Amino acid sequence: MSMSEGNKIIRMANQIATFFHSQPASEGPGGIATHINKFWEPRMRRQFFDIIDNHGGEGLDSLVLQAVPLIHRPKPAEVPPAAKASA
């Protein structure tokens, strides 16, 4: 994942958190997770978890970090057999 892709994912997640900072504190993590689980495609969630796993969530809002256990981790991307053969 390129740095610009990572920055975009961080910015998007933090924008969701900005909204939930104006809501009751108890709704924040669950609301963020629900939004990401519903509206982010698996590729975006893979990029998100790459930031969590490889960069410790650096740059992510504290509410986003609290939501991580509630966010569905997608299955790894499958490489098509033709791509494996040419590798």
Rank of each mutant, 00 (worst) to 15 (best):
P80L: 11
V64Y: 09
A25Y: 00
S4K: 15
I52N: 07
A17Y: 03
F19K: 11
I71V: 15
Q47F: 10
D50I: 09
P76M: 08
P76C: 10
N14S: 09
I32F: 07
Q66P: 00
P80Y: 11
G56S: 03
F20K: 02
P69L: 13
I51V: 14
L63P: 00
G56K: 03
F19V: 09
P42M: 09
A82L: 11
A85Q: 15
R46K: 09
R45W: 11
S26P: 01
I51C: 03
D50F: 15
S62G: 02
R43Q: 12
N37Q: 04
Q23V: 07
I52V: 15
S86Y: 10
S26V: 12
L70Q: 08
P24C: 03
H55A: 12
L63A: 06
K38I: 04
G31W: 02
I10W: 05
D53H: 10
A85N: 09
P80F: 09
S22W: 01
Q15V: 04
I16F: 01
A13N: 01
A25C: 01
R46H: 06
Q15G: 10
E78C: 08
A33D: 00
R45C: 09
G56F: 04
E5L: 15
A87F: 10
A82C: 05
K8P: 01
A67S: 14
S26D: 08
A85C: 03
S86A: 14
I36E: 01
M12H: 14
S2L: 07
P29I: 01
G57L: 08
K38S: 12
Q23E: 11
L65R: 14
F20C: 01
E78G: 13
A33S: 04
R73A: 11
I16W: 02
K75C: 07
P76L: 10
T34Y: 10
P24W: 06
I32Q: 00
R43K: 13
S86H: 13
I36L: 15
F20S: 03
K75R: 15
